[in-house]
Structure formats: structure tokens, C-alpha cells
Design a protein around this nucleic acid. Sequence first.
DNA 1: TCTATTTGATTACTCATAGTTATTAAATCT
DNA 2: AGATTTAATAACTATGAGTAATCAAATAGA
Lengths: 295, 295
Amino acid sequence: MSNQIELRHYKYFLALAKDLHFRKAAERLYISQPGLSRQIKQMEEDLGINLFERHNRKVELTKAGLYLQNELTNTFKRLDDIIDHAKLLNDGMDGNLKLGYVGSAMQLVIPELLLKYKNKHPNVLFNLNEMDNDKQIHALLNQEIDVGFVRMERVPRGIEIQPVFEDTFSLVLPKDHPLTESNFNDLSQVKDESFILFDSSYSESYHEKVMQIFDHSQFTPLISHYTVNASSIFRLVESGFGVAIVPTSLKLGYDMGIKFIELDNIPQRTTLRMVWSNSNTNPVLENLINSIIKK
Amino acid sequence: MSNQIELRHYKYFLALAKDLHFRKAAERLYISQPGLSRQIKQMEEDLGINLFERHNRKVELTKAGLYLQNELTNTFKRLDDIIDHAKLLNDGMDGNLKLGYVGSAMQLVIPELLLKYKNKHPNVLFNLNEMDNDKQIHALLNQEIDVGFVRMERVPRGIEIQPVFEDTFSLVLPKDHPLTESNFNDLSQVKDESFILFDSSYSESYHEKVMQIFDHSQFTPLISHYTVNASSIFRLVESGFGVAIVPTSLKLGYDMGIKFIELDNIPQRTTLRMVWSNSNTNPVLENLINSIIKK
DNA sequence: TCTATTTGATTACTCATAGTTATTAAATCT
DNA sequence: AGATTTAATAACTATGAGTAATCAAATAGA
């Protein structure tokens, strides 16, 4: 029972389940149509499951077939990952880690963490992918990345979240702006400037926190631009289109005609958090979590 | 690359990984030793992974081979579950659910919940298994059950937990005991009796709660017996070996020479909780969770 | 040290079956 | 009614899984 079935059968089944058309699926598989017909039939008989309903001129998935399509797709994606990972082990690597991160984490936090980790585990291969907060959650759920670094507070069920680095905010001004660290007192001094901010699609909770800063300073800012990455914010500030408020750690790594004034006497902070899926079985993931969370 | 490999290869690999002996593994697979040698070799070449180290007179798994053994074992167990489930769908069932529960939940809570659920979903097949708290957590992690009903408070990462039913405690006495509902005031009236309790291995947190009751009544009980199931507790009480404290809902379903006095004016309660793994993809599981948690 | 035994790899064969081409049956469209 | 598209069936081919026989190497035993 379910004994003569081979991977081939499952692959053929998935192809047919996609096309719902024997000839086309067979073509895509580079086999003949009768060959496919026979393999599918054999699979149905061997499993004792009707996978397709053959109607007059169209093929449809049964309930059981639809279920199988979903589950098998996942299973084989997972199987591929397993083989890839085993290959790495075979080549002397201890494993690999696919990381996602918001751009604002790349200046300070990520390099530091990775250096520390790589020191301890030199044979772990890294893939780095900058992506926004929501994309990272998506990628985690699809097992496309192992770990993400986000600025958000709530995550869906199945995702773990832990703070990694807390940062102050800084005011960003053109270099020739009259305000300086010494004559700066509080934000009300820039209440008539126009502001350039990260788009709220970047992170709802990040955006809200920035708005709290304005509340706290008791004025409503004129926002002239929303944009999605730090360098375009800085470019706009440099060109005199306004001023900005960003996480302080972004100060590093950019050399532009701008200056930072750290807002360390307001209570708002932005926290970079590490997120990962608790159903992920990548064996080096645990190392990373321990090495980062346990300081 | 990793293209000509079939399920057969993986099955052979797992057999050899277990035996670490070509001839024996081949025997167990009902094929000849050269056949096995060739298939394994082919698998190693096709995947580009050295799976075994052939020493003088013994075969050992490589690092990559060991990893593969673990992961593939899981994957194929999962694949079997998927096929089983698809078969149920094929036979007109909507799916099946494997439940674990502590014995004390069987009297009142489980039947009520299941009746309500079965009404809505008549084509879901149930498997019921009485097991203690820890066993259920184990079974969940191994995907041997879909849902558990436990009396505990903390569960490991990856397991979800939600309260289902809160119960008072009751004092259990032999039928001919002088204490009755009308002349009972508080537990100090039985402070000189010996007590029969659930073994603390049943649940750490349950045991602690019962101890709190004694603290609350300001006496240290003489405990004469620890046992693991309700009916043996009742049997011992009936036979005059002592008195007991148990969840009130156990009153139902037993017809013995004992009587219950509900301790509803002490603050302690015991909560039956539903637990499940958040990596479980059984499609009917979600129904059950919704139907039970959302009252 | 020589022989017997146990190990997995190699070789040469066969036989089951995946995949082929050619055809049929049924339904739908002109 | 004839043309076309669909999947199933039938008969054939050839790939490669599995086999028996043998080899090479490494012990173990006398």
C-alpha cells in the first residue's frame, strides 16, 4: 500500500495538478502523454485515492487531490532545502543562514552581530537580503529566510521576536543649517521646517513612534516627502528639501552634506528586533539566536 | 543535479544509515547487497554528497549523512501522514484529529466539546488517547497527536496553549464519613485525616496548586498515597485509606461509595487547557481551535 | 605465516517497467 | 457530417534496478 510510488509519480502529479491538462503537462515534463496517463493512473490505484476528476473535456482536482497538491508542494520544497543544507555540510560548512534586514540595521547592528558570530562559527555561510518589515515576515513564513531584523512590535503566531538593539532618534539637517548641537534645545526650534520621513508602509509602529515625538514636542509637522530608504532621505535633506528624523545609528556609513543632532533627551527610542520562525529546523539557527539574544 | 534520485534511494539510505552494514541492510530491504551498494553510490554521486565513510570493516555516517538521516526520517513520516489524510478526504471524510487528554477531562469537558464539534463537522474522524500531561507534550512535538488537553501552565516553544475549562476542587470522602455538605466549614476539619493525591509527576503545577490549598488552610497534610488516576484514588477513599482532593468535574461518571464536597469558597481553581503545535498543518485543526476557544 | 571468513565493490547478465509510437473512443466545435 | 481536441488503450522498446558470481582487502584464527 502506497509502496510502489516514487518521487517521479509525485512530480508528475504536481505538474498535472498545475496544468490540469495531460498533453500540456506531459510536454512540460518532456514525456509522452500516454506515459503520463499511465503513471497518474498507477499512482491513483496504488494510493487508493482518486486524484483527478476526468470530465468531458477538462480535468479537475478532487478534494483529496487539492489537499495533496498543497502538502506535497511544501514537502518537496522542504526536501530541496534539506538536500541543499546537506551539501553545505558535505563541503565542510556547518550550515547556512539566510538573513533579512531593514536597511537601517545595516550600518551598525548587523555587521557587529555577524562579526561576533562569524568569529565563533567561521564555517557558516551567510545570505544577506535587505527587505522591508512586512516582506521579512512573509519570507519567514515561507521559509525563504531564517532570521529577520525588523522595526516592529507585533508579529503573527508562529514567529518569535526578541529585541536586539535600542536606538535613539536623531534630527538630520543640512550641513549649513543654523542649528548645531550647541544651540539646539528642543524640536520646537524646527517646527516650521518641512519634514522628510520614512513612508508609513515601512512600519506602522515605527511611523507611530516618530509621530509621538512630534506630539511630545507639541507641534504638528509639515511633511513634505515620504520615502523608503535612508540614502534618499539624506539626499533630500542635503538638497535643502527639509529636515528629517531617523534612528541615530544611520549616522554611520553615509558621507553627505548633512549633520546629525541626537535627540537623547526625549523618551522615544526605536528598537531593532530579531524575528524567526519557531518551526524552522535549520540547525545553525539556534546558535545564532543564542549568540545574539544572550548578548 | 539531485534529479535521478527516487524515493527508493532515500528508503535504502535510511535503512543503511540504521544498520551501517550493507549486507544486513540489503537483507532487510529484500534486495541483494550489490544492488544496495550501487543505489547508495548512485545517490552519493547524484547528490554530490558523501553519505558514508567506508572504513576497513565498518561503515559510518558522515556529518552530512547524519543530518540527512534525521531530516529525511521526519520528512517521510510527514509524507505518510499526508497520504493517510488524503485517503480520508478521498473517502468522504473532511479529515481526522488525534486527541490526547488527561483522564480527569474525560468526564465532563471532552465529551461536551466533541459533541458540539461533531455536530458542526460530522465527517471528521476522531482518535482519542488518554495520556498524562508530559506525554501529550511529547506526542504533540512528534506530531503523534494534533491536540492535547492538559492541566499545566507552561509549555515549550512551538506549542500553543489556551484555557478551556476552569474547575473548582472538591473534597472526596467515604460515603459514611461524618462530614457532610451541611456541617462542612473548611478544610481544617480534615487536617488529621490522611490524604490521597495525584502523583506530582502527573503535573508539577497541578500538584503545586493542591499544596496551595493546604497552605491556605494552614496545615500540612499527611499524605498516605500518591497515585496516577482518578478511579484508583476513589477506590482508596472508598476503602477508608483516606480522603482526597480532586477537580470537581470528576464527580460525574463514577458510581462508588464516596461523596464530594465542593470547595468553592477557597480561591484555588484548576484549569484544563488545550494545547497544540503551531507547526501542525492538519487542515481540520483550525476548525477545532476556533470552535473550542471562541466558546 | 598461511588459511578461512567477512566485508563492500565490480562485473556481466536478465527482466520488469517507464516511456515510446500508433491508434481508438468520446466529446466538442465548425 | 466532418474536423479537431481530448484522454485512454495497445503493442513495442530500452533503460536501469536487481541478480548471481566473483574480486579485493582486511581481519581472525590456527
